[in-house]
Each structure stands twice: as C-alpha cells, then as structure tokens.
Design a binder for these strands. Structure first.
Lengths: 125, 125
DNA sequence: GGTTTAGTTAACCAGAAGGTATAGCATGGT
DNA sequence: ACCATGCTATACCTTCTGGTTAACTAAACC
C-alpha cells in the first residue's frame, strides 16, 4: 500500500543540505564570522581548536549547501556568504509557520463557533 | 594559542538539534504534515515507505529538538507541533541576515562614498 | 630554483545516523 | 481473560560525519 515516500525533489535535497549544514555549531560559527565580512580559510580557522583541514571540510559542506562561495585570490582563498540559501531555509520555515498558524486559526474559529466567512475552514488544505 | 573553540552554549546545542532535525526530508515531511493538524504516529507513518519504528525514531528526534510534542492518548500517541523551536531557528537565521545586510550596507556605503539614502540597490534580490 | 605559505586531497578512524527485524508492553475491545 | 492495536526498545547492519595525520599542489618570495 505505501510505496509512496513523497518523492524527493531537487529543492528537498537543497533543504537537506542547508539545514544539515547549519546543524553544526562550528559551521554556524563560521557563518556568523562570515556575516561580519569575507575572510580567508586561515582567518576563519584561527579561533577554532581544530586543524585547517577540518575547517576546510566544513567550508566545503557550507559551499555545497550554497551558503558560502569560495573564490581563489592568489594563493589565499576568499570566502563569502551567499544569501540565497538562507532565504531558502527562511522561506521553508516561514511557510510552515503560516500553514501552522492558519490551522490554529481555523481550529480557534471552529471552537469558538462562529463561521469564519473568509477562506472557509481550511481543514483540507 | 587557540584552545578557543567559542564555547558551546545551551542554545548552541538546541540550534544543533533543531537544524539537524530539519536536515532530513522525512522529518520535514512529518513537520509539514503536522502543520495541517495533529496526528498519531500511525497516521504520520502511513505515507512513508518505511517501518513504523523508523518513523517513531524520527519523531523522537523532532521531539528532542523541541519541534514536536508527543502526548499519550489512550493507546495511541498524539503528535503536535511546537512553534517555539521554529522561532529559535527563524530568529537565528534572521539575526544572521540582519548582520549580513548591515555589513553589506556599510560596504556599499564605503564603495559608493555617498550615503545611499534610498537603500535600494537591488543587490539582495 | 628552492622554500615558505595556503589550502586541498587521501587514507584512516570512532562514533552517530538511518534503516531493518523482532520482541516487548500498555491499552482497548469483546 | 484474551487478543488485537499502537506504539517503544533492543540488537544489528550500513553509511555518513567529524575529526586526525600526512602527502600533495599552487602561488609568493628570496
């Protein structure tokens, strides 16, 4: 009966990457740091108690999630934040919240007993 | 000199849990489903091509992240979304974006040399 | 040309994540 | 009392993560 499994879309995979990337405090710290301005890998690695290679891998994860762009600049490598991926995540969260709130609203309407003439009762959305 | 590693706070751990929980499309689908209204584990598991135990574990992850509340209701178990954890995530994203945009603005100010009274500039499309 | 600097790549490791199957434990229905 | 229902727990397997070290590449500098 259930060979369903809602079909992973491309945007699903992107959300996977974005949220998973942010699900690590080292990477969030890197993002925070980059929010204050671009930096090289060494600069980014400096405050952390781990090897440069480890930080480099974290940056790779962020890059694959579309959160960070790395560009070559001489022998150094320049890292910059990319806002698009953040928007993807924020949009997802926002739309869930909207959905959730509208459900709560329609429930409140139902409980209170008046007819919610705007938009019907949305319970089948 | 870097025994630093910015000190993981409690809210760090919570963000870890929240973002990591959302970094999985099955769990996001569960969240989406719950956004439309409360449900039991079986109801939630039905559209997925995996065992009930697997879905139960996913719900445990969501619960530990504070995204979902499970309460016993007879022999069934009632699942409901909890908005607080979402707010945590949204706030984090929002504050990063603010920080980032203000950095961009000051950079733009620096580059343009005049005070950018419109703030238009469209680079953040 | 040789060496330092900046970073990546590869091999490896321990532990966590995501799944399975199966057994167990309440609760509800008859 | 019994059995079905609706989960949870345990054991197990495989793959992914997060980290290490060590070797490598590429640009900069003397």
């Amino acid at each position: 009966m259930n060979t369903a499994t809602p079909a992973r879309t491309a945007s699903d995979e992107n959300l996977d990457a974005v949220f998973a990337a942010l699900g690590n405090s080292t990477r969030r710290a890197l993002v925070t740091r980059l929010g204050a301005g671009d930096a090289t890998i060494s600069e980014l690695a400096e405050p952390f108690d781990m090897t440069l290679a480890a930080v480099s891998k974290h940056l790779l994860v962020l890059e694959r999630a579309g959160l960070v762009v790395r560009t070559r600049r001489g022998k150094a490598r320049h890292c910059r934040l990319d806002a698009n991926a953040f928007e993807t995540a924020e949009k997802w969260l926002g739309s869930r919240r909207e959905m959730w709130e509208s459900t709560l609203d329609s429930f409140a309407d139902y409980v209170e007993g008046h007819h919610a003439e705007e938009a019907g009762d949305a319970s089948t959305t």
